[in-house]
């Protein structure tokens, strides 16, 4: 925390934020709901390590516990067994080092776009001029300059989610947790947002843990895909995504992309039948 605040002062906070930081270790996480006869196991012995600056997607059908896992990493829920550590520090609750983007936007409706982005720095007591500099930067990164003084209700779904991403990043988190952030957007906006996210990630280089049930989205965005299955939620398989060059929209036509898509589709279909 203090490291982030200090580096904000010399105006290049993210350089420090990304320096070797943001490794997530999920160690044998199990999650049970209810008790006795009604006990239900949502997650079973999840083991996963995500390197600093890595972009990992967890892909799985609804009800496989992928959102629960993300919420445990965020500290919004407790694991029944096992633990999560970020850069070696055990997670005991939510904190500013793990920024989160929810599917339902969750912007503060009474704050303007700029005020939403400045929310985290303001809580930490960052002086107004530095806060302004941070929000300017992230308004630019997410191309929202023209909407700085708008209220959330005046924005489209895609723009709202840009604000949510900017708000999370403005806090200089080590990792960015994204819970199906584009799930509520229309197809065209979704594609635009995916490119925008990659663009931002390339600039910021924070660790990203991204949840989705959309196979195309997973392949397009991530360096690594972790497939989860249901009943109880567990990791089924992992894939390294190696696509050539820059991720432009055309990459969706690439044979490697299509091959992986076919494989993942088959895997998920098989899982559902089983």
């Amino acid at each position: 925390m203090s490291g982030i605040a200090a580096s904000a002062r010399d105006g290049d906070r993210t350089e420090t934020a990304r320096a070797g930081a943001g490794e997530i270790a999920i160690r044998g996480v199990t999650k049970n709901y209810g008790a006795g006869k009604k006990e239900f196991r949502a997650l079973e012995d999840i083991r996963l390590t995500i390197a600093a600056n890595e972009f990992v997607t967890i892909l799985g059908p609804s009800g496989c516990g992928k959102s629960t896992l993300l919420r445990i990493v965020a500290g919004l829920e407790d694991a029944s067994e096992g633990e999560v550590a970020v850069d070696g520090a055990t997670v005991v609750g939510p904190g500013a080092d793990r920024g989160m983007v929810f599917q339902g936007y969750t912007l503060f409706p009474w704050l303007t776009v700029r005020e939403n982005i400045e929310y985290g720095p303001k809580l930490r007591g960052v002086p107004i001029l530095e806060r302004r500099a941070v929000s300017d930067r992230y308004l630019r990164v997410t191309r929202l300059e023209a909407f700085a003084n708008h209220l959330p209700k005046q924005l489209s779904g895609g723009m709202k989610q840009r604000v949510a991403i900017a708000r999370a990043l403005a806090n200089g988190p080590k990792v960015l947790l994204m819970d199906e952030p584009f799930g509520a957007l229309d197809a065209q906006t979704k594609l635009e947002m995916q490119e925008a996210l990659l663009d931002v990630w390339e600039k910021e280089k924070t660790t990203v843990l991204f949840i989705t049930h959309d196979i195309d989205e997973a392949i397009f965005l991530s360096q690594r895909i972790v497939v989860m299955g249901a009943g109880p939620g567990r990791i089924v398989r992992e894939y390294e995504v190696s696509l050539p060059g820059e991720r432009s929209p055309e990459v969706r036509e690439h044979p490697a992309f299509l091959r992986l898509k076919r494989e993942l589709t088959g895997l998920l279909k098989h899982k559902e039948e089983a």
Binding site: G75, G95, G99, Y119, A168, L177
Partner: peptide, 18 residues
Amino acid sequence: VSKELVQASFTLGATRWQ
């Protein structure tokens, strides 16, 4: 009040009182 908004504030570093 939306529980998600409160959770969002926690992930942005808010304390309980904040």
